[in-house]
Amino acid sequence: MSAVPQPLTTREDRARARRARNLRHLVISAASTVVVLGGLATWIFTSSGWPNVRRDFFSSHWFTQSFGSVLSGFWLDVRLFLIVEVAVLALGLLIALIRTFDVAALFPVKLVCIVFVDVMRGIPTILLVYIIGFAVPALYLSGVPTSPVVLGGIALAMNYSAYVSEVFRAGLESIHPSQGGAALALGLTPTQALRHVIVPQAVRRVIPPLLNDFIALQKDVALISILGPQEAFRVAQIFADQYFNYTPLLSAAALYLCVTIPLTRVVDRMQARTRRERGGAMALGPR
């Protein structure tokens, strides 16, 4: 009968080591942050051009002078973004469904969709806004809108629905066929199987890439400024050209950040919740 061996380390030893490790970690990260950010700030703020940049880009006078107009211009951006986004989601999903599932009667539509997506994805957004914004009104077609906001919105919707349709298509194709089989076995019609089983799962899977396109569109709305509407960037640019001060451009940038950053966080949280509820299966993501 031998004595119980003495433990070589105790719980207290481990806790002490862990505390020391955490402290070391904290000190190093704090020090490195101070060094890097401090160095960067010193480098910028001591540069010979800083006083000028500060006057031209960070002027509180011009900020208060221009902010109201920039904000009202930005409101146009936000409204346009919301409307275009809804159109993009609807059109993108429709194109994806038509391309993914074979319906004999829709064959010509399918061909049109393929060409549409190829062409729209291949043209730079700014060119598309130009072409549609200037060429369509020149046709003098009756009943076709000539407002630059509407035409710019249409151009953006066409461009982005092409991208988004590919995202949806990847999502639809990632749902295992056995899910459709199970839905049919329950007596659902193919349309019901799509609506209740396949599309909801596909959409959930593609939320992260959709969000990327979402944010990109939110920023690209500024492209309609080339057609003339007084949206945030345009307003800021007019100010800058008039008074040789670029502060309004920075306020416009700040306004964009005010929307895009919370948007990202909201969706991150949404996904985390889904992941919790669904027990981690979402972490696998789209294949």
Binding site: S178, Q179, A182, L188, V197, R278
Partner: peptide, 20 residues
């Protein structure tokens, strides 16, 4: 086939429950 499928029940090896 839909009305006939409604009169039959099928259970799969891999369950195939709807995860959402």
């Amino acid at each position: 086939p839909v009305p006939f499928r409604r009169r039959l029940g099928l259970v799969f090896q891999s369950f195939n429950l709807f995860p959402h």
